[in-house]
Amino acid sequence: MKYVKCHPDKCGYKLVCMATCAKKVQKSDDPALANIVITKKDDGTIDMNVCNQCGQCIDVCPTGALYRNKPGVVRINKDICVGCYTCVGFCPTGSMRTHESRTVPFKCISCGNCVKACPNKALAHEEGEFEPSYFEKGEPGEPGETFPKEYF
């Protein structure tokens, strides 16, 4: 599974990645719609935030709209997402994105456009592995498996 790895120490804060993502992925000129967010902190250091494809959001989704595709990237099926935003609140890295013009969240699809566009090579497309989430492992147990006999 390929994910976008950030190297804040190399970032020149030109925000090319955000503009590129908004344009190429979201078809918008508004960088607030980018799936990657670069911010300058009070101490002057750079914070780069983008989904690492860990997949924990898959387990909190009530509709099954979040899934991992064959290459291993976590995607949102917008047709069945009801915009509950549980995934946004529960994302361990705060990388599930929202915008007032949208009724569903959005996230990095690991396309690599931002990696190519970054003039400072602060982004890299790297291979990663994650523990499969609960739903990736399979359905709740077979009959009799989940109710311990000792309780009868």
Binding site: D59, P62, T86, Y151
Partner: peptide, 16 residues
């Protein structure tokens, strides 16, 4: 132990 864990058990969408 008896409840199945790890499933979003809301009774309406968005009940985290």
């Amino acid at each position: 132990k008896l409840f199945t864990q790890g499933i979003p058990d809301g009774c309406w969408y968005g009940c985290s």
